[in-house]
Design a protein around this nucleic acid. Structure first.
Length: 662
RNA sequence: GCCGGAGUAGCUCAGCCGGUUAGAGCGAGCGUCUCAUAAGCGCUAGGUCGGCGGUUCGAGUCCGCCCUCCGGCACCA
């Protein structure tokens, strides 16, 4: 029996999971369940990333101790995962002192022992505004590229990892293991990044308490990315259970978002190399699921709560949608309209109705008992589907795997139309033929259900039950379960609609939060949800989950602090795009001074220069000048910057330019 | 600007190493059966395969240039 160890990224706990996060866990869960079905000794790890300053701040805002806050959030996350039927074997938290702390400290020590960690008495340029050391190569004319200020020459004690040393070993590794990074887009990106050269990385933060102390310098804590990456190893025993670690490590697959593939493809393997540990088999960078074509974000107010989508019929329709409709590795889109459309087509009309008609005819014509007959054309098709499915799933083409299962479902519907069991039933002479036809249809449905088991665990299990499968779903093994059964007797259960058809648009739409888009009533004419037996997880109390309350207490400043910032009314006299810049617009503004000022603003993606001339805006007048793209900017315009990008200028009532704003 | 990816029927996408009338699913229209959740099945949809040029007996399929979109980097006082 081969073993398979897969992980997902661990999540920051500063807000509850949204559909995008759920997407990652659902697809990983499909993979995990598929491997269990194949009989692999599967270990599926998930967890929470808690040693982040964001998390620390979030806890403070809510007036809670960080750890207590993380405890609460763990429950929130676990509840969502439960509601989605995520079958993780283990859940690691980075605040786990028994498992994670020793893992991290052992890894630091191993890198230290190998001479790859050195103390950063390295006199480095440190940008106070960034609160970050600036690598020499990032400096522009000796200034911080972001703040255009002269970095301070600081000797703050800091520990660095010799990432630069691993450029060649990493490139060699990618060369030897072409599938280490998938899909190819991500691989290209990472190759390019590493070829450009790697800079040593600080792995410690001094003067912080929220984190894991360095073994060699307990006054400092391990930097959060080092801390987080180590979870994959610490969870399976690294640093505290050598036997388990030897058995499970290395991971076969890290499932991560495309935004963090680089951490997993560069830093993580370099750390492992340094520590002399085997490298994971593959890092897969999945895409994002957008909502109506837009990135989900809190500021956009278009977050979809995964449990909302699982509310009416359990998690399976959502799980099917996300695996079947999104090409795995590419970005996808979720809309309620599309979700309902696919629900009706794939579940109500196709699979659900198929199960129903087979069961109903068997009950009516054969009192629910079927004896295996001759076997027909469907058997070959079932075998083809199963092997196509397997090929797709092994290559992580989840969408193709599901498509293969659906080809079998369609074939079964066609088969019934061709053979017309209802006609056969009218003539007693065709009794044997009728038995054979019903059996073959049921057998095809059974095999399709086996293929769908990883995607829709509870629904597929229910279908198997109705098709007379006597083996418990968890005990089924791919090869034997997908083999055509040409002998034996089985009882078929006719138990009503699995997925009632949705007649009204918006029937399962719930609590859409997009501003300006009133959510349609969730009332509908559709029949009630299926029985608890068919979808045990459907009973998750989705609607009752307490949402963390919005922020209240931000860090407060004194009025004096605010007065240091000189805000002034300004009128835009000229505006032009900055050559070679995607975001910058060059402005000439009247701030009530003798000469107009030149100010650069990163709003080119939101405004055409023509739209800007004549506007009255607010600028920061006493900001140190900075040079951007070779042009000096003397101030800063105020604009709202939504998380998803773009900028919205703050317009002022036309006051005299130069008027103080406060 | 540099690097990478993509642009094929209303929508989501297949089309490998170039070769008969460019495909699938969904949606839509029409027809049909009646076991079934007004579901199923069949037929239809006639799309300059982003644009221009080139290689070739022959190009979505190779080459060059251009346009658009997405992502990464730069940049976002």
């Amino acid at each position: 029996m081969s073993s398979f160890f897969l992980t997902t990224a661990i999540d920051f706990v500063n807000s509850r999971p949204h559909l995008g996060t759920a997407y990652e866990k659902i697809t990983a869960d499909v993979i995990a369940r598929y491997h269990r079905l194949k009989g692999d000794d599967t270990w599926f790890l998930m967890g929470n990333d808690e040693h982040s300053q964001n998390v620390f701040r979030r806890a403070q805002e809510q007036g809670k101790a960080p750890l207590a806050y993380c405890d609460e959030m763990e429950q929130v996350f676990r509840e969502v995962w439960r509601g989605l039927d995520i079958s993780f074997n283990d859940f690691i938290r980075t605040t786990d002192q028994k498992r994670h702390f020793p893992g991290v400290q052992t890894l630091v020590q191993a890198c230290l022992d190998n001479g790859d960690v050195y103390e950063g008495t390295y006199e480095g340029p440190y940008c106070v505004s960034c609160e970050e050391f600036k690598p020499e190569k990032d400096l522009v004319d000796g200034l911080c590229p972001i703040h255009k200020t002269k970095p301070e020459w600081i000797k703050e004690r800091n520990w660095f990892f010799r990432l630069s040393k691993y450029q060649r070993p990493l490139l060699a590794y990618y060369e030897e293991h072409p599938s280490f990074i998938e899909p190819e887009v991500r691989r290209n990106e990472v190759l390019r990044l590493v070829e450009d050269g790697l800079v040593d990385l600080s792995i410690s933060r001094a003067g912080q308490s929220w984190g894991i102390p360095l073994p060699n310098d307990p006054q400092s804590v391990v930097y959060v990315w080092f801390d987080a990456l180590t979870n994959y190893a610490s969870a399976v025993g690294y640093g505290w259970d050598d036997e388990q670690f030897a058995r499970r490590w290395p991971a076969n697959l890290h499932i991560v978002g495309k935004d963090i593939t680089r951490f997993h493809c560069v830093i993580w393997p370099a750390l492992l190399m340094s520590a002399g540990l085997p490298l994971p088999g593959q890092v897969f960078g999945h895409g994002w699921v957008f909502f109506k074509g837009e990135r989900m974000s809190k500021t956009m107010g278009n977050i979809v709560d995964p449990l909302d989508a699982a509310k009416r019929f359990g998690p399976d329709p959502l799980r099917l949608y996300l695996t079947k409709e999104v090409v795995y590795g590419a970005d996808g889109d979720f809309t309620w309209e599309r979700f309902e459309e696919k629900y009706n087509a794939d579940l109500a009309n196709n699979l659900g109705n198929l199960v129903n008609r087979v069961a109903a005819m068997t009950e009516r014509y054969r009192q629910g008992r079927l004896v295996a007959g001759g076997g027909g054309s469907l058997a070959t098709l079932a075998a083809d589907s199963a092997s196509a499915y397997r090929r797709a799933m092994d290559g992580l083409a989840l969408h193709e795997g599901v498509a293969a299962a659906y080809r079998l479902i369609s074939a079964a519907n066609e088969y019934i139309a061709e053979t017309q069991p209802w006609s056969l039933a009218r003539d007693p002479a065709h009794a044997d033929r009728l038995s054979g036809v019903l059996h073959d249809a049921a057998e095809a449905v059974r095999i399709a259900a086996v293929l769908l088991l990883p995607v829709m665990p509870s629904s597929a299990a229910e279908i198997l039950r109705r098709m007379g499968e006597t083996t418990a779903p968890g005990d089924l093994r791919f090869d034997t379960a997908t083999a055509w059964r040409a002998s034996g007797e089985r009882g078929i259960l006719n138990a009503g609609a699995l997925w009632p058809r949705l007649e009204d648009k918006g029937a399962i739409t719930v609590s859409e939060t997009t501003p300006g888009t009133p959510s349609p009533s969730s009332a509908s004419s559709a029949a009630p949800a299926p029985s608890a037996a068919s979808a045990p997880s459907a009973s998750a109390p989705a609607g009752t989950t307490p949402h963390p309350v919005a922020p209240a207490a931000l860090e407060q400043i004194a009025i004096d602090d605010f007065m240091k910032v000189q805000l002034k009314v300004a009128r835009i006299l000229e505006a032009s795009n900055v050559p070679k810049s995607k975001k910058l617009v060059q402005l000439k503004v009247d701030v009530g001074e003798a000469e107009p000022r030149t100010i650069l603003a990163g709003i080119a993606e939101s405004y055409q220069p023509e739209q800007l001339v004549g506007r009255t805006i607010v600028v920061v007048a006493n900001l140190k000048p900075a040079k951007l793209m070779g042009i000096e900017s003397n101030g800063m315009v105020l604009a709202a910057s939504p998380e998803g990008g773009g900028a919205l200028l703050l317009n002022a009532e036309p006051a005299v330019p130069g008027t103080r704003v406060r």
